[in-house]
Design a protein around this nucleic acid. Structure first.
Lengths: 114, 114
DNA sequence: TATTTATATGAATATATTTTCATTTATTCA
DNA sequence: TGAATAAATGAAAATATATTCATATAAATA
C-alpha cells in the first residue's frame, strides 16, 4: 500500500492544482492554443512545449490582481510545477514538469464527457 | 481557450481529490493491492476494477472517524466519483469513474519520481 | 540620481474546508 | 418490541486557504 508520506505528497500536488487561479496559470503556460487530445498528447512521450511567459502576460491572461498572481506563482514554483528565469526587469515562467500536462488532460477529459 | 465553467469544474474535481482522507478512500476502492504501472494500467482502456467496500471496511482502512469518513463519502458521491448500493444494513461504495484511476496514476508518478 | 516599470512580499482580512460532537435514521436480531 | 449495529446528518469548532492592501525591491530609463 501507498505510505502516508507519498499520500501526503499526492494530496499536495492535487491541492496545488485545484485552485482556479493556479489552474489558469498552468493553462496559460500550456499555451493558449491548447486543445485536448491534439498534438499536445505528444507531451506524454517526454516532449514538452517550451512556452514561457512574463508575469505581466500571465496577469493579463488570468485576469487577476498582480499580487494574487505573484503569490500563486510562488506556490507553483515552490511545488516545482513551474520554474522561472529573470531577464532584465521581467521574470519569465514556464512549466517544469510534464506530469502537469497529463494531469490537466485527465481532468479535462473527465469534465468534458457528458 | 477553455471556458470559465470548464475551468471551475476542473478545479472542483482536483479539489475533491486533494483531500487526504478522500484520496485514501479512493485508494481503498482502487484495491489494497494497487501498484503503479502494473495490471491496473488496463483500467485506462475502459476496464475498471469492480471493488466495492462497506463503510466499515473503508473506515478501518482509512483510519479516520466514522463521521468524517461518512461526510467525505458523501462529497465523493456528490461529485460522482464513487457510487453506492445498500445491502441490508451495510452500504457498499465503489469507484464510478475510470478517470479517477488515471488521475491517481499521474499524480503518483509525479510524486514517485525522485 | 530620480522616476518609472515589473515583480515580490508580509500582514490583515475574508472565505472555505476539514473535523468533531451529538444526534438521527435504518436495519437486523434477540 | 427493544437492544444493537451500520451509516448519515446538522451544527459548531478548528484549521487552512485565497485575496487584498500597502509596501518593498530591483532593473531600466530619463
Amino acid at each position: 500500500m501507498i505510505d502516508e508520506l507519498t499520500l501526503a505528497k499526492m494530496a499536495d500536488m492535487l491541492s496545488i492544482a485545484s485552485d482556479q487561479t493556479r489552474l489558469k496559470i498552468l493553462l496559460c503556460l500550456l499555451g493558449e492554443d491548447y486543445r485536448l487530445g491534439g498534438k499536445h498528447r505528444c507531451a506524454l512521450e517526454g516532449e514538452m512545449p517550451q512556452i514561457s511567459k512574463s508575469v505581466s502576460e500571465i496577469i493579463a491572461f488570468v485576469g487577476a490582481s498582480q499580487s494574487l498572481v505573484s503569490h500563486q506563482l510562488r506556490i507553483l514554483k515552490d511545488a516545482k510545477l513551474i520554474s522561472s528565469k529573470k531577464e532584465g526587469r521581467n521574470v519569465y515562467y514556464s512549466l517544469s514538469d510534464a506530469h502537469v500536462i497529463e494531469l490537466v488532460e485527465v481532468v479535462l477529459e473527465h469534465v468534458l464527457e457528458e
